[in-house]
Design a protein around this nucleic acid. Structure first.
Lengths: 107, 107
DNA sequence: CGGTATCCTAGCGGATACTG
DNA sequence: CAGTATCCGCTAGGATACCG
């Protein structure tokens, strides 16, 4: 499981779906840098794992909406806890990296 | 940051270091399946990010001990929260996957 | 609009051998 | 004991083109 949500995009998508239903194009615009391919793949994985649902509306032009399932919503809290941690400690991490790399360069 | 700890081994190592100092060989035995190479690399990453310290004792045979830093310890709580989630929902996830794959096979 | 299909590359990670 | 060094397969993920 940790590798599933530990990939590059899953947590970001889940964060976007936190607030409710979202269209494919809406997600693509909200997650900067994601390719169409990876958005599709990530959503398929979430769907397969029962974390999100995919609803296709038979319209022209087509409309597809994604939404977190109940199980998916239970992931929000621990995931945001981790995100908060990352945000809060990023400066410290960056500083540590610079120190480490500088120490290496001196040798 | 999420990709750093989202790799295959970091969280496992951090979990092992939760209880205090650990030697290299002790970690290797406690984390089944990890190669010497990946243990070294993962520990170096943790050290670079300031999450763990590496202490070399000038003895024969050599002894190296790893320990979480204060920053590293702050990661324990959100990380275990995520681990608890994964453990608790694994049955539901597995069931969802089987359903999804079975539905695909019917087409 | 919301996808597939295809090609391609960087790098994660395993196996094995060697070393201070 | 605690590492490097080397080789190599696999796959996550980007770019691009096409499709219903």
């Amino acid at each position: 499981m940790l590798d599933r949500i530990g990939d590059k995009w899953s947590l970001l998508i889940i964060a976007e779906l936190r607030t409710g239903k979202r269209r494919f194009s809406s997600l693509r615009e909200s997650v900067p840098g994601i390719s169409q391919r990876m958005l599709t793949l990530t959503l398929r994985h979430l769907e397969r794992d029962g974390l999100a649902t995919r609803t296709v509306y038979a319209e022209v032009p087509p409309r597809v909406e994604y939404e977190l399932t109940d199980v998916g919503r239970t992931l929000i809290e621990p995931a945001t806890a981790l995100a908060r941690w990352a945000l809060a400690h990023r400066p410290a991490i960056d500083a540590a990296r610079r120190r480490y790399d500088a120490a290496l360069a001196r040798d």
